[in-house]
Amino acid sequence: MRRARPLHRWVGVPLTVLIVLSSVTGILLGWKKQFAVLQPPVQRGASLDARDWLPLHQISAAAEAALHARLGEPPGPIDRLDVRPSKGVAKVLFRDGFWEAQVDLSTARVLSVDRRASDFIETLHDGSLFGEGGRVTVSTLLGLGLLLLSMSGLWLWWGPRLTRRRT
């Protein structure tokens, strides 16, 4: 039992930074759809009928042109297209700068261009801000640290009760 207290302290104190960061970013990610500052609200396109929709290369070209106009320079590569059939829009997400352009699927009209703070928050939350190695390191440290803290904390709480019960 005497070894559990310093172990608990030496794991807990440095791990507190990761726990607080993970907790705060997790809360923000849980609320991202409630606040436009975290993630732009989904717009509504002119038609929900997929037969009216334009090809994705036209949608992505419209998004690239709109972001180019906004930034004054060519945008980086597109990371992904998130098609929302129930809204008639595609969210075009860019790899650099956490930018998003929402484009009407039937007219290719750009409905909004904005940053996605939630994507930055997610990279902090999962450690991927520091690359794939950082993501693996952060999740491993956090997981092992919380496991050790749980076990040593349980022992610090339960150990004295066992000792008293035996005597």
Rank of each mutant, 00 (worst) to 15 (best):
G12T: 06
P14C: 03
L15N: 05
L15W: 01
T16P: 00
V17F: 12
V17G: 01
I19P: 00
L21R: 04
L21D: 00
L21C: 03
S22V: 02
S22K: 05
S22T: 02
S22W: 06
S23Q: 01
T25V: 00
G26Q: 04
G26Y: 01
I27K: 03
I27G: 02
L29I: 10
G30T: 07
W31L: 15
K33H: 11
Q34C: 04
Q34E: 14
F35G: 12
V37A: 11
V37W: 12
V37L: 13
L38V: 11
Q39D: 07
P40I: 05
P40Y: 04
P41M: 10
Q43F: 09
G45Q: 11
S47R: 06
L48K: 13
L48P: 14
R51M: 07
D52I: 07
L54F: 08
P55M: 15
H57F: 13
I59G: 10
I59Y: 09
A66R: 13
L71G: 07
G72M: 05
G72V: 02
E73D: 11
E73W: 13
E73V: 10
P74F: 03
P74D: 09
P75N: 06
P77V: 10
P77I: 15
D79F: 15
L81M: 14
D82Y: 10
V83L: 06
V83K: 13
R84N: 11
R84C: 06
K87W: 02
G88P: 01
L93H: 09
L93T: 12
F94C: 14
R95N: 07
G97E: 10
W99P: 05
A101E: 08
V103D: 00
V103H: 02
A108P: 07
V113C: 13
R115F: 07
R116A: 12
R116P: 08
E122R: 11
E122T: 15
D126K: 14
D126S: 14
G127P: 04
S128D: 10
S128I: 08
F130A: 07
F130Y: 14
E132Q: 08
G134T: 04
V138R: 14
S139R: 10
L141C: 15
L141I: 11
L142K: 12
L142G: 12
G143N: 05
L144A: 08
L144M: 03
G145M: 03
L147M: 04
S150K: 10
S150G: 01
S152V: 03
G153L: 05
L154Y: 14
W157M: 06
